[in-house]
Design a binder for these strands. Structure first.
Lengths: 230, 230
DNA sequence: AGCTGATGGTGATATTAATCATCAATTAAA
DNA sequence: TTTAATTGATGATTAATATCACCATCAGCT
């Protein structure tokens, strides 16, 4: 089970991305209504269908955002790292979280009371604009993901994932991904067996080398082409 | 080609859904920077990849929101009716519209200059909160659509569409939908042939009656079950 | 009226990827 | 350390639906 460490009133990392749109008193109000919590790998941070009472801000670490469908069918919507707000669309658009959030590595987050957040936005339009911009970008990324999952076939989707880890998360052509094959399948919208087969093909075709969870991209060009042609 | 009728400064229908969060001067500012435009069926209101300069408000009518993928592959993201804002996620999250908007019936929309909209939100947090709530709900609906398209098979997806038209759009168990079979396919994430076959099966199984574009739901229970079980 | 292009419809076939069935290897538990 | 559970891997089979080929019907033009 999870045993998060709670550390109220330490907001130094949230202040940073918001400080230019918040007054001192607003920052202070946030500080007073915010908990810093540490999670170990695989800990659940937010459980789908629980009451959407807080927005969380990722101070450091890496999380997966995933949606439980029926009986054992999960869909991983996204992977997010430091300096992102999570859960705002649930807080503002629903009463319950419509996805779960799980730590993929040791992760520190700030829980921000949604009422306080709403109060500050009601008074501070600039913060509202920032949040709108972030939710809007999320929205656009979601439509991209939708079209990718719907129109690309597996090799293209797997190439997308490899590019995402390489370029966005680890910024390296060699990396160790923090997901099981089953989780990779949930990210690619397929099954564990199909992911394994596709990765094996990539390895056989010398597009990547893969040993356990450590991948090296041997031919970035082919990966890009696979992603593009879908 | 389209020949929209322009009618500046008539804002009576926008005022309504926003009036409780806007001051008179803000409403007036909106009024001064807004065009009322009429479109005929099949007219393009917003073209994907054009500069996202305006948010549109649907005063009356029905539009489809669709995304062009590669070469002739389209995905219909949504159908929207009166009293909705369209394009806000593109305006705030990108510089270009990331989808096209097309009138499905004679439609009247208000074009709202994005700069003015941003200015008002920067000063008026309550409007920001409203917009955040709407974008958030859109976001949640998008994840629902994503999981539906990804995990339900065709009969379930077609049932979803029939329910959507029946319950949300026409509020009747008999209705004439404003889409071609090809467009229905784009909404269900499939092909024209597969949509035709699925509708034929439903007809053969006496779940619906269908004559051209006019559908009657004969067995709402089975439709609901198909939608639920996917 | 007759042409033309878009739409609706059906059958045959091909293809992708899911499912099913095992089994090995690794990790966690007792 | 032995057992049990999870994860990774591979082959055989099945199933859903895309693709291809074709024709009928309908709407708008000239």
């Amino acid at each position: 089970m999870e045993s998060p460490t709670v550390n109220p009133n330490d907001m130094s990392d949230i202040a940073n991305p918001l400080s230019h749109s918040l007054s001192d008193s607003e920052l202070n109000l946030l500080n007073m209504n915010c908990n810093l919590v540490e999670y170990a790998q695989r800990d659940t941070i937010i459980k789908q269908n629980s009451r959407a009472s807080h927005i969380i801000f990722i101070n450091s670490g890496l999380v997966k955002i995933s949606k439980e469908m029926r009986k054992g069918k999960n869909l991983m919507l996204n992977i997010e790292g430091a300096n992102k707000f999570i859960g705002s669309s649930s807080v503002f658009g629903s009463d319950y979280y419509n996805y779960s959030v799980t730590a993929l590595e040791p992760t520190v987050v700030s829980f921000i009371d949604s009422k306080i957040f709403k109060e500050i936005i009601a008074k501070n339009g600039a913060l509202g604009l920032e949040l709108i911009a972030q939710i809007s970008r999320d929205n656009i990324l979601m439509t991209e993901k939708l079209s990718s999952l719907l129109y690309k076939q597996l090799p293209g989707r797997v190439a997308d994932i490899i590019i995402y880890f390489s370029e966005t998360i680890y910024k390296s052509e060699t990396f160790t991904f923090p997901l099981t094959r089953q989780e990779l399948a949930e990210l690619a919208g397929t099954t564990k067996e199909s992911i394994i087969r596709t990765l094996s093909e990539f390895k056989h075709d010398k597009i990547i080398s893969i040993e356990r969870n450590t991948i090296s991209i041997l031919s970035p060009k082919i990966i890009q082409t696979l992603s593009r042609l879908g």
